[in-house]
């Protein structure tokens, strides 16, 4: 698939939108007509051609503009990218995994040439060319995680494994769903999930941690998570919440379709071989409700899911102020017809 990169914004005038092809491949996360919490982990293996699951790191039409937005966020707040000192080997592991995957999966866009530790990287969409020594951070303009993190869509955190725990000791997070890397860096698996309601009591995190501690090299896994965002804003960080929080009060029956976006995270988990750390990729997709209801099944189902969402999650996901307006708007697209199983369009 030849990609045409869109020139668009995720702030101020918000010119972001999806092409019809991008709508069709949107990873709609709800597989049934009511809300069900599930860890829903599955192997992160090659998915159907053209789908967001085709490759480990999905590059799409928003690539160039998303990278520009990331650079702006990092310019304003360098603390969105942090790595504790013992994470250098894991940073190189990440750089290697991402570069190898991108060059293999998108040969028209990226090229990696390796001669021992002398590496040559070409990124055509961003017009970057770099020769560097693998393992020597002084040969790159940034530390390895930040260097490659500025060239791949999605947020990333890296977890060190110690004492049967995972510790979030590095990350580059510029488009997060309201959590702060600067605050959470150094926390263990239970701690950084501390604010998530309901799941702790259900034992979800104990089981997930046990699973991840045994995550195997070459056997990555993925899951989908979701929230909603007003305006196609990538930087919904707590750091800037006092600036974007008021967006949540601007939803009216007239503008729901343009303002409210379903935001889906495809989360990938990779065991990094040399450092024994785990790379966590959080690849976000935004879709306005106007565009979402062009797939009739999605309009019907989102209406039914939002109606059955528990109160705790409405608060946690920050939907309280506009959920009712959104459900009312979506009801126009729900004729009560049955829907097929699975998330894909009919």
């Amino acid at each position: 698939m030849a990609l045409t990169f869109k020139d668009e914004t995720f702030r101020d005038d918000f010119t972001f939108s999806n092409s019809p092809a991008a709508i069709r491949r949107f990873p709609f996360p709800f597989v049934e007509d009511k809300y069900m919490y599930s860890v829903n982990i599955e192997p992160h293996t090659t998915g159907p051609e053209g789908s967001v699951f085709e490759f480990p790191f999905d590059i799409d039409e928003h690539y160039v503009s998303e990278m520009r937005d990331r650079a702006m966020v990092l310019q304003e707040d360098p603390a969105r990218c942090q790595a504790l000192p013992h994470m250098m080997m894991a940073q190189w592991d990440m750089l290697e995994l991402v570069m190898m995957s991108m060059a293999r999966d998108y040969p028209d866009l990226f090229t990696l040439t390796r001669d021992g530790s002398k590496w040559h990287w070409v990124n055509r969409p961003l017009k970057i060319e770099q020769t560097f020594t693998f393992g020597d951070a002084s040969t790159l303009p940034y530390e390895p995680m930040e260097y490659i993190g500025r060239q791949v869509q999605g947020d990333f955190s890296i977890q060190d494994q110690r004492d049967n725990q995972l510790w979030m000791d590095a990350g580059i997070i510029t488009s997060q769903a309201d959590w702060s890397l600067d605050f959470d860096v150094g926390m263990n698996f239970f701690e950084w999930h501390g604010p998530v309601p309901l799941a702790h009591e259900a034992g979800v995190f104990e089981r997930a941690l046990k699973f991840l501690l045994n995550l195997q090299i070459s056997n990555p896994v993925r899951r989908l998570n979701w929230t909603m965002t007003i305006n196609p804003r990538l930087d919904t960080s707590p750091e800037n919440y006092h600036k974007w929080g008021k967006d949540r009060t601007t939803v009216t029956p007239e503008n729901v379709g343009q303002k409210v976006h379903l935001r889906v995270e495809m989360q990938g988990l990779f065991r990094l071989p040399r450092s024994n750390a785990i790379l966590f990729s959080i690849r976000g997709y935004l879709l306005s409700l106007d565009q979402l209801v062009t797939v009739p099944k999605w309009g019907r189902r989102l209406h039914r899911v939002l109606k059955t969402l528990p109160e705790e999650l409405i608060g946690y996901k920050g939907l309280s102020r506009y959920r009712d307006t959104t459900i009312e708007w979506l009801s126009k697209y729900d004729d009560g017809a049955p829907t097929s199983r699975g998330g894909g369009p009919d």
Binding site: F183, V185, G186, G194, P195, Y241, G245, R248, T249
Partner: peptide, 26 residues
């Protein structure tokens, strides 16, 4: 800013997290 004190705690910072409480409706 007026901050809501969350029970979320960072050992690295030895501090609780404070988040603007009236961001949505000043």
């Amino acid at each position: 800013l007026t901050l809501m004190v969350r029970d979320h705690y960072s050992r690295r910072l030895a501090a609780f997290q404070g988040v603007c409480i009236d961001a949505e409706v000043p």
